[in-house]
Structure formats: structure tokens, C-alpha cells
Amino acid sequence: MELALSSLHLLIAASAVTIGLAVAAMAIGLVIGLLAAITRVGKVPVLEQFVRGYVSLIRGTPLLVQLFMIYYGLPQLGLPLEPIPSGIIALSLNVGAYLSESFRAAILSVPKGQYEAGLSLGMSYWTVMRRIIIPQSIRTALPTIGNSFISLLKDTSLVSVITVTELLRATTLVIARTFQPLTLYAEAALIYWLLSSGFSLLQERIERRVSRHV
């Protein structure tokens, strides 16, 4: 019990890194995902093929391999990156690919009449996208965006293997000193669970807020 309490502040401090990684990767991933989805739905030549390849590659390979490619692989091309930027890049690219599929499905679910109503006012295709289709899609995609974020939050633990001291690595370091794996891993698990639950609540509130008009 004493050990649990004495290590708690260390683990909480490390959780800040975990949250930071997840939030940063999510922010970048949302931009990547939205742009990728628009590229595919709008059938932008060349880029569309590129995005297709990107999504297929990310979804078809383990996140750990993607992380190693960026952290250990890129230096060979003369692009050495620090652990934290490597982690954020790998996580962003990964979550971005999944989000692009969510956004794409959401965009395609907006009825054709919405495009026609926008076009009939004289809007360009891209204005219709920006003003009419995307705002409605984001609402539709919110539940899956929330799920992706919860997965991402837990996936940040993989970044511990490239020496980023987030929650899992901090836990392992304490265990190396104290030899109490059960207590400490349980403590780490509890923190992950609390964080996930907290963000789930936040997600519900956001969903309620944006669907007040339906």
C-alpha cells in the first residue's frame, strides 16, 4: 500500500506524457484523416491513389513496426528523430489512416439532396463540402472518432519501447527498483482505465452537444 502511494505521483506525472502523446497524435491524425477522406471522396487525381496506398499500408502493418521504421529506420536516410517526435509521428500516421476511413464513410452517408441543395444555390463542389457536407459528417463520425481516441490512448504504451517515459515505461522503471510488478502494473492499468473512462464521458457530452439539432 505504501509502495502504491509512494509511486503514484511518479505514475501520474508519466500519465501527463501519455495524455500529451495521445492528444497531439489525435490532433494531427484528425487533420490527416479529414484531408485523406476528402481526397478520396473528391477523387483528386494522383493524390487519391497515394492516399489509398497510405491507408492500406498503415492498416496492413503493426503499429510497432511503423514505430520502428520511423525511429530506427529514418536515421539511415539521414533523418534522425528524437523519441517523442518519432512516437507522435507514428501514432498520428496510424490513427490518421483509421480516421480517414471513418470520415469517408461519414461523408458518403450524407444524402445526395444535401449536395444538390448546396449546388443549386450556386456553390462550388468544395464550398458544398466545407459548409454542408463536412460539418454533418463530423457529427456522424463522432462515435468512431471517440473509439479511435480510446484505442490511441492505450496504443501510446507502445512508444515506451523507444525510451519515451510515458505511463507504461515509468511503471516498468519503478518495478525495476521495487520488484513489485503486480501492484504497479495494476496501478498503471487503473490509471489507463480511469483516463479512458474520463474521455468516454467527455465524448458523450460532445455528442449530446452537437446533436442538439436533430
Binding site: L119, L121, G122, P135, H213
Partner: peptide, 20 residues
């Protein structure tokens, strides 16, 4: 075509108002 649509209003059977 865009200008033509701009100067020609269109009212749909299913309204197609922007729900958001």
C-alpha cells in the same frame, strides 16, 4: 453553370434543408 444555378432557384420535393 454555377452562375446559372445562382440565378435559378430550385425547390426540392424533399426540401433538403441543411439540418445543422
Amino acid at each position: 453553370i454555377r452562375q446559372l444555378r445562382q440565378s435559378t432557384g430550385f425547390v426540392f420535393q424533399s426540401f433538403n434543408l441543411f439540418p445543422h
